[in-house]
């Protein structure tokens, strides 16, 4: 009885020491989890999750301060990936803002007054234009975050959904017919 206890104790001590040593030896600076989570997030920087960008949201997830289902542009797929990464269960989207189709911002250039407010709001510097000059969106760089829409004093920025074309068309998931139609 006693010897068994001693053996267990010994094992506990040895393993504890090993673990402690490993913690020091393989210590990782920074939080690699944040980067891994950030890599999954769609980088629209839209702030629809309630955090001021993708990285802050990633940090919040890594610290356990935010749930994984708050990112509308990431979609279900993003939640699945986050769940896989973090070893959690999938949870349906639970944010306040309804997910929208992928869009790009468009500035009606005729009415642009050149105030530069949108250029400052754009998180990815996808708007060109100087003060008192008209601005325009670099569509290829626009993430569709809508952050430029609200600041526009003359309300000329609209979001245009990206339509499917022949070249971006995707094969659909096959319909799995189990029962005969007859």
């Amino acid at each position: 009885m006693l010897s068994a206890l001693l053996v267990m104790l010994e094992i506990a001590v040895v393993l504890g020491a090993v673990l402690g040593f490993a913690a020091i030896k393989f210590r990782v600076e920074g939080n690699p989890m944040v980067d891994k989570i950030d890599a999954i997030l769609p980088q629209t920087q839209c702030g629809q999750c309630g955090f001021p960008g993708c990285k802050p949201y990633a940090t919040a997830i890594a610290n356990g301060e935010a749930d994984i289902n708050l990112c509308p542009p990431g979609g279900e797929e993003g939640i699945h990936k986050l769940a896989d990464l973090l070893g959690r269960d999938f949870v349906p989207y639970g944010g306040d803002i309804a997910p929208k189709p992928k869009s790009v911002a468009f500035i009606d250039e005729n009415d642009c007054i050149g105030c530069t407010l949108c250029t400052q709001a754009c998180p990815v510097d996808a708007i060109v234009g100087a003060a008192k000059q008209m601005h325009t969106i670099i569509a290829a760089e626009c993430t569709g975050c809508e952050l430029c829409v609200a600041p526009c004093p003359v309300d000329i920025i609209s979001m245009i959904p990206i339509e499917e074309t022949l070249t971006t068309w995707k094969w659909k998931y096959p319909i799995y017919a189990l029962s005969p139609v007859k």
Partner: peptide, 10 residues
Amino acid sequence: KAADAARVRH
């Protein structure tokens, strides 16, 4: 690819 580019730009 788009997300990576957006990250860099951000």
